[in-house]
C-alpha cells in the first residue's frame, strides 16, 4: 500500500510539471492555433538560461531570474516567427515551428557545446517523510512549485481581468479587436507565458539532473498530455498532466520489471486508448450548437 502511495505522490509531482508545461502549450494553441513543435526546445532554453545564470548566481536566484528571460524569449519568438506567419496555412506554420526547433537545437549546441552541463550547487534538499511515505527532494520541489503555479494559472484564466481577455482573444481575434481588446499584445503575452512555464520545467529539471538534450525529450511529454486534455482546455491539461505523471510512475513501479521499456510508451498508450473512446480528448471544449 505504501509503495503504491509512494508512486502515486511521485507521479502527481512529475505530473504537475508536465501539466504546467502543457498548459502553456495549450494556451498558445488556443490563442493562435499554432502547434508549437519547439516546446521541447523552450524547455532546453530554460535549462541553459538557468545554467548560464548559475555561473555567476546561486542556483535559486538563477532559476528565478530565468523566468523573465524566458518570457522575453517567448515574446521574441512570437514577434519574429509566429506573427509573420499567422493566417498562413496550418502546414506552413507547423513547418516553421519544426524549423525553429531545429534552429534552437543547433544554436544551443553551438553556444553551450554538446556535453551535458551540471549546475553549481543545488536546491536545498527537501525530503519529506510521512510515516512510511518518503518523497525525494525532486518530487517535493516539483509539488511545491509546479502545482501551485498550475492552479494559480487556471484560477487567473477563469477569474482575472486578463484571463477573461485571453479567453476572448483565443475565441475570436477579430471580435476582440472590434471590442478594442489589444489582441496582438495578448497573443504575445501568451507566448511569453508559455515560454516561461516551459522554463519552470527546464530550470527545475536542470537543477535536478543537469542540462542537455534529454530536456527536449521531457518537453515532448507535452504532446500526449495536451492531446489527452483535449488540446484547447487548460484545466484539461492540468488533469491530464497528473494522469500521465501517475500512470508513468505506476508503470515504472509495477510494469517496468515485467516489460522493460513500457514506461516510455505508457503515456502514448493512454492517449491512444482515450482517443479511441473520446476523439476530442478528455476535456476538449464541445462546440456550442444553437439554432
Amino acid at each position: 500500500m505504501s509503495f503504491f502511495l509512494q508512486l502515486l505522490v511521485a507521479g502527481i509531482a512529475t505530473g504537475a510539471l508536465y501539466a504546467l508545461m502543457a498548459m502553456g502549450f495549450v494556451l498558445v494553441y488556443r490563442a493562435t492555433r499554432v502547434v508549437n513543435f519547439a516546446i521541447g526546445e523552450f524547455l532546453l532554453v530554460g535549462g541553459y538560461l538557468t545554467y548560464t545564470l548559475n555561473l555567476v548566481l546561486p542556483l535559486p536566484w538563477a532559476m528565478v531570474l530565468t523566468l523573465p528571460l524566458a518570457f522575453a524569449f517567448g515574446l521574441l519568438v512570437e514577434r519574429g516567427f509566429v506573427r509573420p506567419l499567422l493566417g498562413r496555412n496550418v502546414v506552413a506554420v507547423i513547418m516553421a515551428t519544426i524549423g525553429l526547433a531545429l534552429a534552437l537545437d543547433g544554436a544551443t549546441q553551438l553556444a553551450w557545446g554538446p556535453d551535458q552541463k551540471y549546475l553549481e550547487g543545488q536546491l536545498p534538499v527537501l525530503t519529506l517523510a510521512l510515516g512510511e511515505l518518503i518523497l525525494p527532494s525532486r518530487s517535493v520541489w516539483s509539488l511545491l512549485l509546479a502545482l501551485p503555479a498550475a492552479l494559480a494559472l487556471v484560477y487567473a484564466l477563469k477569474r482575472s481581468r486578463y484571463g477573461v481577455l485571453v479567453r476572448a482573444v483565443a475565441e475570436s481575434e477579430v471580435a476582440a479587436l472590434a471590442m478594442k481588446i489589444p489582441a496582438p499584445r495578448i497573443v504575445a503575452l501568451v507566448w511569453g507565458l508559455s515560454a516561461a512555464l516551459a522554463a519552470v520545467g527546464g530550470a527545475l529539471l536542470a537543477g535536478l539532473s543537469g542540462v542537455g538534450p534529454h530536456l527536449i525529450a521531457m518537453g515532448l511529454m507535452v504532446f500526449p498530455v495536451a492531446i489527452l486534455g483535449g488540446m484547447d482546455s487548460v484545466g484539461g491539461a492540468l488533469l491530464a498532466g497528473m494522469l500521465v505523471g501517475v500512470a508513468e510512475s505506476l508503470s515504472r513501479g509495477y510494469l517496468e520489471a515485467l516489460v522493460p521499456g513500457i514506461t516510455e510508451a505508457t503515456p502514448f498508450l493512454i492517449v491512444l486508448l482515450v482517443l479511441l473512446a473520446r476523439p476530442y480528448g478528455l476535456f476538449g471544449e464541445r462546440e456550442i450548437e444553437r439554432v
Binding site: V164, A168, S172, A175, M179, I181, I288
Partner: peptide, 19 residues
C-alpha cells in the same frame, strides 16, 4: 453579433469594458 460564445454574459461585458 460576434459575442464571445464560450464566455458568460458577465465575462463578455467585462471583456468589452476592460479599459
Amino acid at each position: 453579433r460576434p459575442v464571445f460564445r464560450y464566455l458568460t454574459v458577465m465575462e463578455n461585458l467585462r471583456a468589452a469594458g476592460h479599459r
